[in-house]
Amino acid sequence: MAAGLLAVGVVAWFTALCAFDIRHRRLPNALTVPGAVAVLCGAAVAGRGWPALAGAAALLAVYLLVHLAAPAGLGAGDVKLAPGLGGLTGAFGVDVWMLAAVGAPLLTGLLAVAALARGRSDPVPHGPSMCVSASLAIAAAW
């Protein structure tokens, strides 16, 4: 039952993140930071604190480096979402973390190519791809 409640919480968090990013093209601190804290605390309680912390730190490092190299290409909100998603997927193992980490930019790239093919040139928000990729990676692990 606890796992079901946690899953509902994660789905609600992902839904709020995706809706906000699609509508406003940004991810607010009010969603990213508390989500990361909740994920890391939940993982610690479940006995997966160290893998979650490692996943959070690794994905934060990757996203921060990309943001610093190309700030127009990856927003600060995506960087702040990285620890939460890295922690969540890291708690499930390196394979899940890697699948989510690689899947998110691939999904955003595919969406951007599809938008260009339809004649649209506005930026594609990356947060939804991060959430969908993490969801699919976790579902594949289950």
Rank of each mutant, 00 (worst) to 15 (best):
V96C: 09
A56Y: 09
N29D: 14
G55E: 01
L59Y: 07
C131G: 08
F92A: 12
A36W: 05
V132G: 01
L136I: 12
K80A: 02
L107P: 04
F20N: 13
T89L: 00
P123I: 00
P83L: 09
L99V: 07
A76N: 00
G9A: 09
A61S: 14
L64N: 00
F20G: 05
C41H: 04
T89A: 09
T108S: 03
G77T: 11
L68K: 11
A16K: 08
L59F: 08
R118Y: 04
A100K: 08
A56V: 13
V39C: 06
S133W: 07
G9F: 06
F20V: 15
A104T: 09
L106N: 00
L65P: 00
I138Y: 13
G49P: 07
G103L: 03
G84N: 09
V45Q: 10
W50G: 05
V132I: 15
A69L: 11
L85F: 13
V37G: 03
W13N: 03
G75T: 09
S135P: 05
V62G: 00
S129H: 11
F14I: 03
V62H: 03
A137P: 12
P125S: 14
L60R: 02
G119I: 04
K80F: 11
V96E: 08
C41I: 10
A114F: 05
T15W: 15
V8L: 15
G77A: 14
G47K: 13
M98R: 11
S121Q: 13
L64S: 02
F14G: 15
L107K: 07
V66C: 05
G47T: 11
H24N: 09
T89D: 08
A141W: 12
L59K: 03
A72C: 04
A30S: 14
L110C: 12
G86Q: 15
L116Q: 14
H24G: 04
V33S: 06
T32M: 10
L65Y: 05
L106W: 02
G127Y: 04
I22E: 09
H126R: 03
A141R: 15
L88R: 02
A44R: 13
G119P: 12
L111K: 02
P71R: 11
A91P: 11
A139Y: 10
L107T: 00
V37W: 01
F14K: 05
G75I: 06
L6Q: 02
V8C: 13
L85Q: 05
G47D: 15
L106D: 05
R26H: 10
G127R: 01
A141T: 02
S135R: 08
L27G: 01
V96W: 04
L53E: 04
A56L: 02
